[in-house]
């Protein structure tokens, strides 16, 4: 194809972009070198390359603080994230399907109802939510976290799904209907598989928010042993912690899974992330 031919100009462009990418990565460079620095060097020579590379920092960070190891916290984070994302995919796609396929005014109203839900400041809702979830026994365990995040992130999931479904052609559904398929079958067998790109979008956006959230998990886990990664990690960044090497090692551990997931599935990820636009 004409537009994709590699010409000398493209080589120049390639070099320029690689240089820009290197500049972009400077923060990652510091993240990496500080994470492997010996204790003293962090403040005697903060920006130089470490004199010796101390991989033991990762081991120490992994053991964690306050009796909570990062390994255990990682598992809890995985449970909460996977649980929330699964529920959001199920409820979000179903709700958005109704909105997208509704011809009456109510469809448009419901859409606005969910979009405003994204903008409302959930911070103001924390105390009422905390007390009601507590009376249901949903504070201090993973199930409660999953319910909470699902409720809070549902509007975003519905928004992304609905936008995508609007652009989804109806042909397949109509064909299936002609074939006599039931409503449930049409949705789960025909429509849902077509939603794969936006399902990836929803999974990545909401999964990232849940994985990185610190405060809600701190409050709603309420000191129980079900601590998640950001909560456990904060043990290193308390008031009297200036052990940047430990902090950065913990940061590396916390971003490693999500970055690895991202790097692995890059193509799918990138397409999935914006699956809402692309159809």
């Amino acid at each position: 194809m004409e537009s994709t031919r590699y010409r000398p100009l493209a080589a120049v462009r390639e070099v320029l972009f690689i240089l820009l990418a290197l500049v972009w990565c400077i923060p990652f460079y510091y993240l990496a070198i500080v994470a492997v620095k010996p204790d003293m060097e962090v403040f005697t020579a903060p920006m130089s390359f470490p004199s010796t590379i101390v991989l033991g920092n990762f081991a120490e960070a992994w053991r964690g603080t306050g009796g909570v190891g990062l390994g255990e916290a990682l598992l809890n984070s995985v449970i909460v994230t996977v649980g929330t994302v699964s529920l959001l995919i199920f409820l979000g796609s179903l709700t958005a399907y109704v909105i997208a396929r509704n011809t009456q005014r109510i469809g448009g109203l419901l859409y606005v109802f969910f979009v405003v839900g994204i903008i409302l400041p959930y911070q103001m809702a924390i105390v009422p939510l905390f007390s009601s979830l507590r009376s249901l026994g949903l504070v201090g365990n993973q199930i409660g976290m999953i319910v909470l995040f699902t409720g809070l992130l549902l509007p975003m999931a519905v928004f992304l799904y609905a936008g995508f479904m609007r652009a989804l052609p109806h042909d397949y559904e109509e064909a299936a209907q002609v074939d006599g398929a039931g409503r449930g079958k049409i949705f789960f067998r025909i429509v849902f598989p077509l939603l794969r790109p936006v399902t990836a979008t929803v999974a990545i956006m909401t999964g990232m928010i849940v994985w990185n959230d610190f405060f809600l998990q701190l409050i709603f886990l309420n000191g129980s042993s079900a601590q998640t990664l950001p909560v456990a990690m904060y043990g290193f960044v308390g008031e009297f912690t200036a052990r940047w090497n430990m902090v950065f090692a913990a940061v590396c551990i916390s971003i490693a899974p999500i970055l690895a997931f991202y790097l692995f599935a890059q193509r799918r990820f990138m397409q999935g992330f914006t699956g809402g636009i692309k159809s």
Binding site: I126, V127, F130, S131, R134, V139, F215, L218, I219, N222, Y234, V237, G238, E239, F240
Partner: peptide, 18 residues
């Protein structure tokens, strides 16, 4: 975490009766 985060956690728990 000390500072405002501590105050935030304490107040939220107290206000929610927990």
């Amino acid at each position: 975490p000390s500072g405002e985060s501590y105050a935030q956690a304490m107040f939220t728990q107290l206000q929610a009766g927990a």
